[in-house]
Design a protein around this nucleic acid. Structure first.
Length: 225
DNA sequence: TTCCAGGCAATAC
DNA sequence: GTATTGCATGGA
């Protein structure tokens, strides 16, 4: 078993399945990988992805609750809101002026496509590499690994990537290693979904404050097979 | 008070 | 293509 997959195994043993991406009416759905089931649920994930940019998910949940409370979680409902109403609802997530624009951009895009390609997503102002991969992985069950700041810190702590590694470099490194272990496409999506979620859960505890990685239990796990 | 969060786009070299 | 900066609220 390679180091990357071993890290995945260790994290899964510690924290168990994470059940991402959470939906307002469902919450975290551990062991149910069929979500999202409806187009509204797909959109809710896209909305959450945009809102969570550089923000904690608890703040995002407040914003989603604000929208839900006025029956405006859907894209059609959001379009009917005034810009100020939308900004007010998503205010807890921060950058609300920018994100309101991003959301409206995205709705325009979302309404014209069935299943987006990565390239199409990246053409939407407000959707960068991580957001595109999050949308594809959690919204459309595509095997696109999500790389975030936590992922970099964790891998850097074990000298598995260079400090200046690009998004694409980190992603290809991880996927190559994972793909050596997992051959089935559906299983691969589940592992990608869980792995990213596990990294976030773990990194919140051990990679949020400096020195990053202090007390990280993966170290002993890698030593003792 | 300072630091950071499940980033992105615009700008300047 | 790489580095820097603005965006903003909320919790530790």
């Amino acid at each position: 078993m390679n180091v990357v997959f071993k890290i995945y195994t260790i994290l899964h043993n510690i924290y168990g399945a994470q059940g991402w991406w959470p939906l307002v009416d469902v919450g975290y759905h551990k062991q149910d990988y069929e979500y999202p089931r409806t187009r509204d649920e797909i959109f809710e994930i896209c909305l959450g992805v945009i809102l969570t940019q550089n923000t904690t998910f608890t703040s995002v949940e407040k914003s989603l609750q604000n929208l839900s409370a006025i029956n405006s979680l859907g894209y059609d409902a959001i379009k009917r809101m005034s810009l100020d109403e939308l900004k007010k609802a998503i205010k807890p997530s921060g950058y609300f002026n920018q994100k309101a624009g991003y959301i409206l951009n995205f709705i325009e895009f979302f309404e014209t496509i069935d299943i987006p390609t990565r390239k199409q997503l990246l053409s939407v102002k407000g959707i960068g590499e991580e957001s595109a991969d999050s949308i594809l992985l959690y919204g459309y069950h595509q095997a696109e690994f999500v790389v975030d700041a936590y992922t970099r810190r964790l891998l850097l702590n074990y000298n598995l990537i260079k400090a200046d590694a690009k998004y694409k470099d980190v992603k290809s490194f991880l996927t190559k290693e994972i793909n050596k272990e997992i051959k089935d496409k559906n299983e691969l999506v589940k592992v990608y979904q869980e792995f990213h979620a596990l990294i976030v859960a773990h990194a919140k505890r051990f990679y949020s404050k400096k020195p990053y990685g202090e007390g990280c239990p993966i170290a002993s796990g890698l030593k003792n097979p």
